[in-house]
């Protein structure tokens, strides 16, 4: 009896001992900051009020009244709607090409994936240059089409579109490789059987490839949506969120509120909103797993 207990104790101690280092860092930089944000979001703490003052849900009510926050939130939705579906469709089509044994597919794969290897901040530099009036390649192209000088990043109506195009360029190749992995798992027999039965190539894509890559689509959609909340590096270089907050995004606004307006209570409340959004979007994936979107 004693031996069993001692074995049990040893096993538990060993198990916990092994996870302890990870748990320690997760505790310090994931759980504690999350809880701390929730706590601080209930207090007023800014330059005028250096000592935290309990305000209940005051900060959250303040967010609803803050027209910049509402605009930023709206921008984030526009940014997600602009980048996610387009990158996914493009990624699917490129994977289709790269999956078939066509000539030049290695080159196409490299061309499509390389933006992923460049730091976002370098991407921002490159595209800032491309969009610079008079000098930039894309700015000149846009001027040529509209027959007037354009400042894509300096105009509230075009800045979001310009950043969406850049983000699609950066991300589509990343999503392509997940489709590539998904497509390689589909048995070639299915396509052969379809061909024998007179099903056309387009129909085969519609009735075999698309349904069988549904789990990939769900997975990619979750990454793409969460990325649309996390990607803000480029704003620092390209627009600082402007003009007039037309390109501002949630995480960048949190950064601004913390380090330029020094309003910690509001920054905490926005961080909580951000955490909630990320948890909701990621849990879509678990929900999807339960509903068996994959085809087994």
């Amino acid at each position: 009896m004693n031996a069993i207990w001692s074995e049990k104790l040893k096993r538990n101690g060993f198990g916990w001992g092994l996870v302890l280092p990870s748990l320690l860092f997760l505790g310090m930089f994931t759980y504690y900051p999350m809880l701390k944000s929730v706590w601080l979001s209930l207090y007023e703490k800014n330059l005028a009020t250096p000592e935290p003052l309990f305000v209940g849900f005051g900060n959250y009510a303040g967010l609803l009244k803050d027209h910049v926050f509402m605009k930023v939130f709206n921008n984030n939705i526009v940014f997600a709607l602009g980048t996610v579906p387009a990158s996914i469709v493009l990624a699917f089509v490129m994977a289709l090409f790269a999956d078939k044994a066509l000539k030049g597919r290695a080159l196409v794969r490299i061309a499509f994936f390389y933006p992923n290897m460049i730091p976002m901040i370098a991407v921002a530099n490159i595209w800032l240059f491309l969009y610079t009036p008079h000098f930039g390649l894309f700015a000149r192209f846009a001027s040529w089409i509209s027959e007037q000088p354009v400042n894509l990043l300096g105009t509230p109506d075009t800045v979001m579109g310009a950043l969406i195009v850049m983000t699609i360029w950066k991300e589509a190749g990343y999503f392509m490789i997940f489709y590539l992995a998904g497509m390689q798992q589909i048995s070639k027999d299915l396509y052969e059987a379809a061909a024998v039965n007179g099903v056309g190539a387009m129909a085969a894509i519609r009735r075999i490839t698309i349904p069988l890559t549904m789990p990939t689509t769900l997975f990619v959609a979750v990454i793409a949506i969460t990325n649309s909340f996390k990607l803000v590096d480029h704003l620092w270089i390209m627009t600082k969120g402007g003009p007039n907050n037309a390109s501002n995004l949630l995480l960048y606004y949190i950064y601004d509120t913390t380090f330029n307006y020094y309003d910690q209570g509001m920054a905490a409340a926005m961080t909580v909103v951000m955490i909630a959004l990320l948890l909701i979007v990621s849990s879509m994936q678990f929900f999807g797993w339960d509903r068996k979107i994959h085809y087994e």
Binding site: L26, P33, L278
Partner: peptide
């Protein structure tokens, strides 16, 4: 070991809410 499954779920939280989203609070830590 006791609590293994619960702990594993707790680990998954970091995948959902990565440190990049917590810059404000991590700066304070």
């Amino acid at each position: 070991f006791v609590g293994r499954n619960l702990l594993f779920m707790l680990f998954l939280v970091q995948i959902m809410v990565p440190p990049d989203a917590l810059i404000f609070s991590n700066y304070q830590v």
